[in-house]
Amino acid sequence: MSSSRPSVLFVCVHNAGRSQMAAGFLTALGQDSVEVRSAGSAPADSINPAAVEAMAEVGIDISAQSPKILTPDTVESSDVVITMGCGDACPVFPGISYRDWALDDPAGQGIDAVRPIRDQIRRLVEGLLDELAPADQQAGR
């Protein structure tokens, strides 16, 4: 990784649901060990209220976040880029680790449909944290 803190960028189309929930989990669970970013290829006007509600249920407040536009600079300056359905709009640069998380889109869904997506994102983020943790931290777990 390029610095003492790896940077992770979560990307989805609207940057209003999946990527915001993932960023919320990584921020909360990573405890400052990771620089967290999120962006969208076609950002929405605001965050999905069902995503905000679902995250609040697990004690994570993402209500102050706002969708951000994906820029090549943001991608190029990240160590890991995790896409969640941004299609061909995701810029690809050599030397960056890419992953694609196949997740249902919570857009237009009610809270009952968003909860399982939230829980799946949490499991993926926990796995990512294990992967990013230095070997000496993993040995102490």
Rank of each mutant, 00 (worst) to 15 (best):
Leu124Asn: 13
Met55Phe: 04
Ala22Tyr: 00
Arg123Asn: 10
Val8Lys: 00
Val36Met: 03
Val81Glu: 01
Trp101Asp: 01
Pro91Gln: 04
Phe10Tyr: 11
Gly140Lys: 10
Gln65Ala: 09
Ile69His: 09
Pro116Ala: 04
Asp100Ser: 09
Ala113Lys: 09
Asp79Thr: 05
Leu132Cys: 09
Gln65Ser: 07
Pro43Phe: 06
Pro106Val: 14
Ser33Trp: 10
Gly17Glu: 09
Asn48Gly: 05
Asp32Ala: 14
Ile96Asn: 11
Ala133Met: 15
Arg5Gln: 12
Gln120Ala: 09
Ser46Asn: 05
Gly127Asp: 13
Pro94Met: 03
Pro72Cys: 00
Met1Glu: 09
Phe93Glu: 04
Glu131Lys: 15
Asp88Val: 12
Trp101Cys: 02
Glu53Cys: 13
Ala139Trp: 09
Leu70Gln: 01
Leu129Cys: 11
Val92Leu: 03
Ala51Ile: 02
Ile47Thr: 12
Asp119Met: 10
Leu29Ala: 11
Gly127His: 07
Val36Gln: 08
Gln65Asn: 10
Asp88His: 12
Asp73Ile: 03
Asp45Thr: 12
Leu103Val: 10
Val114Ser: 06
Ile117Asp: 03
Val80Ala: 02
Leu9Phe: 01
Gly110His: 07
Asp112His: 02
Thr74His: 02
Arg118Ser: 06
Val81Pro: 01
Ala54His: 00
Glu57Thr: 06
Ala107Cys: 09
Pro94Phe: 06
Tyr98Val: 02
Cys12Pro: 02
Val75Glu: 02
Ile47Asp: 04
Asp79His: 01
Pro116Gln: 04
Leu124Gln: 14
Asn48Ser: 07
Ile96Cys: 08
Ala44Ser: 15
Glu76Gly: 12
Asp73Trp: 00
Asp61Leu: 01
Ala50Trp: 03
Leu103Cys: 13
Asp119Gly: 09
Ala133Leu: 15
Pro49Asn: 08
Gly140Ile: 15
Phe25Trp: 11
Val80Asn: 02
Gly95Met: 05
Ala16Arg: 00
Glu76His: 15
Ala139Leu: 14
Ser63Asp: 06
Cys12Trp: 05
Ile121Gly: 05
Ile47Ser: 11
Asp45His: 13
Leu29Asn: 11
Met1Thr: 13
Val36Asn: 08
Ser41Lys: 10
Ser38Arg: 08
Asp45Phe: 07
Asn48Gln: 10
Val34Ser: 06
Glu35Phe: 15
Ala39Phe: 02
Ala107Pro: 08
Ala113Met: 07
Val13Cys: 05
Ile62Phe: 06
Ala54Pro: 03
